[in-house]
Amino acid sequence: MTSLPTQNRVDGLLALPPTQNPLSSSQARWNHAAVLTRKLGRSPLTILGLAVVVILVLMALLAPAMTGGVSPIAQDLSGRLQPPGAAHWFGTDELGRDIFARTVYGARATLAIVALVGVIVVPVGLLVGTLAGYTGGFLDAVLMRITDIFLAFPSLVLALAFAAALGPGIVNAVIAIALTAWPPYARLARAETASIAHTDFIAAVVLMGASKWRILLRHIVPLCMSSVIIRLTLDMAGIILTAAGLGFLGLGAQPPTPEWGAMVATGRSVVLDQWWVSTIPGLAIFVVSLAFNILGDGLRDIFDPKSA
């Protein structure tokens, strides 16, 4: 018996042609996942973006191990502003703290802000958007006007105003960013809901006697999820930049907690002589937000080929 072409064996399940007529819902789901995974495999750039994001998560989780026990807040005034070298890979800052350790630990602040903003913004946006889109009428008008008010301001100025009003700190930065970031999600969810609400299957569920909330939460919200999640990935870069901007202005994580934006700010006064103090954390911000941008672009192409 001749062997199968090697390619099939290597790719295993994923190489099977997608079924047009799935026999069960679980088969349909696996099928869909396989198609998406294969598309992902064809886009090396997206994988690169994903890899950087994974590294960021690992950096945040394994910070103590990665820095070999070097504390990000231990000061050494005799060894301040040392250039990058064997002892300090990325040099030291104006208080003699190791910049490599601070950069690695800084991933925690960045990741925490991004994750928390996502966790707040997605449910709020979904709820407001689907509610407005499904109920329509007066509630729709009120909710959308509120959304418009928030959209009328540049998000950084608004976030600044909120952060300044709430006082500096990482939690307040999260609240400030979340307050300015939710309106586009409400818009998006509302548009999706409007197109779903008049489909036959929703009419069928209504006839089956489902309550409004059940229709909203079990039937409409899940269908809005994918576009909302993609939008969130694309927005992540912006959220990171806003968070870094707030940190740079002193409204983010407070010293001595290492945060990339604040680290750039501390190096500001010495940038002409000790470039590494500002440059390295800035580079970290740049790489991470680039990775999120690439990942978001790739995911959008994979899930929605129309809007390439």
Partner: peptide, 15 residues
Amino acid sequence: GYSMPVFWMGLVGLF
């Protein structure tokens, strides 16, 4: 351009 923190680009540019 999308991923660059402006304030950082400004500092590096100045440097």
